[in-house]
Write a protein that binds this DNA or RNA. Structure first.
Lengths: 231, 231
DNA sequence: TTGACTTTGATAGTAATACTATCATATATT
DNA sequence: AATATATGATAGTATTACTATCAAAGTCAA
């Protein structure tokens, strides 16, 4: 019986749907672990094959190269994020409260989504924090964008932008603000561990709470009528 | 007679200072052209050697690998940026006016710095827009950070952060805001050409002006007493 | 049960990449 | 004139990112 949530992912990203076989599921779940441990550069299909007792050739039947695996994982991550935010804000009317929940989800997705996914969301979040930029900064960006590889990310940003718009219709740049907010959550979590002098967030237990409060603070200043931190 | 500005760059980044020989200068100026044209992945020392009528081995005497070239170029870029902002704000007292100039420089550095550099600043800016994240998202981040490879970038962010602090001492996250503003200039220029649905900026002649105004708008909302766009 | 089709495994091979090493030559320095 | 330094020329190695081929195993349908 299937209890996991399977996000719908653009089928041009893969050659064969990894969710339709045991090998496929192993490929993606073990990719997450290995990329998190080795880093994306040192990760490759030969090592992955060895790890899951399969072969390089078999994995190439699912994904044409390791970049596609990364694109697949990021689509998964953003789809999952979107879904979680949707579920958690369904019953809520006030866009300020919705935004507060969206921010919290953005930061805390790994703890909230445990046991809903084949994938280790903690590892996946670290991967996204480290690697997401590699996905969207490529010479192949136009072709990949036209193929719809980034739809999941764009959809999430759009729905944040609509929230901003609902809260403060006079705000001129909701889409830019949305990407900035998402990147702020990525960056500050990353910098806090790796380049601490670039952020006010202090590493440690309450780190995620700090990032959450910070993003609330920025939203409160950017949008009128939006004092999230006081609610 | 030397009329160019030579930014001081952490000497651990290179094996032999490229500014101290003709070959070295050719290496960096041709790297900029080639990375801009080919993309960083397809650029390598063999191709570079062929282009400048030298050899792979000779280039390896200057840089231990192509990543170091990218780090070198980004240090150059941020040093140059810092220097330009400093020169242009030297005589000015009002931190708001200083900030306005800093924002403009951030966006318009290629046109402002023509003929001050060996390097084509237009190409270099495109490279930074596309590749900067690759530099700071690496498994070697801690070692490289400890070696001081990112000092130029950090210094620039710090000086922006002090400006924010001068303008509005009550603002809680000046450093995060500084990195966000710098990244906003990088991202929106990139997205405008490559992922247009992620930004409100419209590609075209006035593109840089739009980005400038947008950043001013964000600063105006984030900091109290800071209506830059009205000045 | 036979036969066909699909999935995976096993193995081999190729072109390109990212270096490293060595030696010769040219040039500059003392 | 002797020496040190910079560069060029060439060769070689390990790894990577694929591609191709064939065999074995399991599945499904007549």
């Amino acid at each position: 019986m299937e209890v996991y949530i399977n996000p719908r992912i653009n089928s041009d990203i893969f050659l064969k749907n990894p969710l339709e076989s045991d090998l496929g599921k192993k490929i993606i779940s073990t990719s997450v672990k290995m990329i998190d441990e080795l880093g994306f550069e040192k990760f490759n299909f030969k090592k992955l094959g060895a790890e899951i007792n399969s072969t390089e050739a078999s994995i190439y039947r699912y994904f044409s190269n390791k970049n596609r695996v990364l694109i697949y994982l990021s689509s998964w991550y953003w789809e999952f994020m979107q879904y979680q935010i949707k579920v958690k804000t369904k019953e809520i009317e006030d866009p300020r409260k919705k935004l507060k929940i969206a921010i919290s989800t953005l930061v805390n997705i790994p703890t909230e989504a445990q046991n809903l996914s084949y994938l280790d969301m903690g590892s996946l979040q670290r991967i996204i924090n480290e690697q997401f930029y590699k996905i969207i900064r490529t010479k192949k960006i136009s072709i990949q964008n036209e193929s719809g590889f980034f739809e999941s990310y764009k959809r999430l940003c759009s729905s944040l932008a609509s929230l901003f718009n609902e809260i403060d219709g006079s705000f001129k740049y909701p889409m830019t603000m949305a990407t900035s907010i998402v990147e702020m959550s990525i960056n500050n979590t990353y910098c806090c561990s790796n380049l601490p002098s670039l952020t006010e967030i202090k590493c440690g237990e309450d780190q995620k709470g700090q990032v959450e409060m910070m993003i609330q603070y920025f939203c409160g200043r950017l949008l009128e009528q939006c004092e999230l931190s006081l609610n």
